[in-house]
Amino acid sequence: MKQVVQLNVNDAEHELALDPSRTLLEVLRESLGLTGTKEVCLLGSCGACTVLVDDRPVLACLTLASACQGKRVLTIEGLRQGEALHPLQQAFIDKGAVQCGFCTPGMIMAGKALLDRNPHPTPDEARAAIAGNLCRCTGYEQIVEAIVAAPAVDEAARVGAREGGHYLMPDMAE
């Protein structure tokens, strides 16, 4: 029997009638169209579906959507601040931390969870934070560099904003 579930996803309130067997990953991707969160192993072994629930990095493929009643969910789509990228997203671009891109949303959400708790992580702390996220392309080095560099990107963006400019979403059409 379907249950009515209130979910706050990326600061937007949703009221959904859901079968209790649906996972948060299914609801994000299939009901809300938020396909930034990736579906890969569905067994908790790869980290590609990492989202933040009440600020904690969790695996959306193993989370029942019904269990998120009244909780705050943050996905990769909720990171950008207006037109500006989140500093960690910008750091991933600056450091070339993306190849095929499939692990990237999960990597960024795991990195964001770390930066929220520890704004200036060391490379080893960054490695520990993404230990549950598999990447088959990059070899992880640039990802670690991006997470460590994010605070500086954030600072640069703040200075840029004070001086009248800021990091913009790159126009993918160009």
């Binding site: 569905l42 067994l43 908790g44 193993l62 029942l64 269990a67």
Partner: peptide, 26 residues
């Protein structure tokens, strides 16, 4: 019973367990 779901959900995904009720302690 389900706690965090990290053990039960993958097993249900593989059809190893098909409980009629899942009771969360959260």
């Amino acid at each position: 019973l389900i706690g965090g779901g990290t053990d039960l959900v993958p097993s249900m995904r593989q059809g190893l367990y098909t409980p009629a009720y899942v009771i969360s302690l959260q």
